[in-house]
Amino acid sequence: MKSNTAAFTSVAPAFVLTGFVLFSPVVYAIWFSLHDIRYGAVGPFDGGANYLRLFQDYTLPGTMLRTVIHTGASVVITVAIALAISVGIDRMKPRAAMIAKMIVILPWITSAVVATLLFRWVFINDIGVASYAVGTLVGGEFTPMTNSTGAMGLLIFVSVWKRLGYAVIVLLAGLKSIPNECIEAAHVDGATPWQVFRLVTLPLLKTPMLLVVVVLMLANINTVETPLVLTGGGPNDATRILALEVYERAFAIFDLGSATALALVMFAANIFMVLAYVRLTGWKA
């Protein structure tokens, strides 16, 4: 009995804090989204009018599609490259591996605003070094920002660049936990390096890989900064993804009613990934 009191007083502050900031706003938002919102003030109950207005918006399917393309492509490319890099780093000597890890996570530890800003300055700007290098090496102009495919490609590129470090760190930890005997046994049995990777390493990496996929999906779906700083959603909405749409609906158009409704739709999507995450971390009591 005494121990229960001690336990509950120890964990209570943590739940007060997370409950207040992470959970109770969602409950309030559900109530809020079912009311008529004028200039941020809560008017009479009007059922699903905010949701109806949202789903009648003809631009929404496009935004959803772009979100799927951006997140899908970013996650697949990040995981593929991170696999190659982490296998490479895993074979390095400890000192070299440490330096390699530090280089790899540099964009990730920098804020999205600063990283995207600097990326834009170096690689995209018409007076940046990259366009100069491309101009001298290949000839012609490097202007990906003027067409929609180029802009989306660039957004995906920056998203991969920014979060690659995270994926590498997790996969490296996964690789470290694979017993050497498994790999050696496969070698002794005459497997080629590619076979070892495909038939031994990859299956044993399943959990960390799924974890990376889940976290990257969450991070990419919820990124506001990267499209905001890189393209501002343009050209012609080509890079307007869901997170940016919610942000601008609320703070540029000031339609808080439908912005809250859309944020809750997004939150519902997040919940699936949260559940997958909890399952993958596999906590045993």
């Binding site: 706003p25 938002a29 997170a243 809250t260 944020a263 997004m266």
Partner: peptide, 9 residues
């Protein structure tokens, strides 16, 4: 991590 969805609420 999905703080953007939580931002408006």
């Amino acid at each position: 991590i999905g703080a953007a969805a939580l931002l408006i609420p």
